[in-house]
């Protein structure tokens, strides 16, 4: 057995587990028929789509499975960021002096899932809005822009989130 085969089987098992947990959450019963039906349905779906859900070039398990302790820290940080930037945007609505600008910068994160989470969490906070994500290149609309330099703007927007996310996923 070569490494590619083992990695494919591992991805298949992870996809099946993910689908089965979602099934358990939605049905919320422990009847035998429901469990067996859900298991077979998730096996079939995983067999058809595991190469789309987890692509081949995700190098290791570290790229896919998050560290549970740092995940909670990350979620708490997101909630704090949400209220902080909401307050800034609310202040901008009353005073009226906004400086909207489109900045673009790169991220240091390696896995696809971590990049998606980064762009989604940039969009989640009011005041910053991800327009496009190519490989590691983000295009962001920033309502309260304070610098002209792109790299400094990127550090200001993402550094807080990226540092925490790097400990959660690789």
């Amino acid at each position: 057995m070569n490494y590619e085969r083992i990695w494919a089987i591992l991805r298949f098992i992870l996809t099946t587990l993910f689908l089965f947990i979602i099934w358990l959450l939605f049905t919320a019963t422990t009847e035998t028929f429901t469990l067996i039906f859900g298991l077979f349905a998730s096996l079939l779906t995983a067999g058809l789509t595991y190469h789309i859900f987890l692509p081949k070039h995700q190098a290791s398990l570290n790229f896919i499975l998050p560290n549970p302790f740092y995940l909670i820290v990350f979620l708490a940080l997101m909630v704090i960021n949400l209220y902080k930037s909401s307050f800034q945007v609310a202040k901008a609505v009353f005073t009226g002096n906004t400086n909207p600008r489109i900045v673009h910068f790169r991220t240091r994160l390696k896995s696809d899932i971590a990049r998606t989470i980064l762009s989604n969490s940039i969009t989640f906070t009011p005041g910053t809005l991800t327009l496009d994500l190519n490989d590691d290149h983000l295009v962001v609309h920033w309502l309260l822009c304070s610098t002209i330099h792109n790299k400094a703007a990127g550090e200001k927007i993402k550094s807080n989130i990226e540092k925490s996310l790097k400990r959660t996923l690789k």
Partner: peptide, 16 residues
């Protein structure tokens, strides 16, 4: 005035 800024203000209501 522009749709981007309106989306920021809208996410203030729609998310927070």
């Amino acid at each position: 005035k522009d749709p981007y800024s309106r989306l920021h203000a809208g996410s203030l209501c729609g998310t927070t």
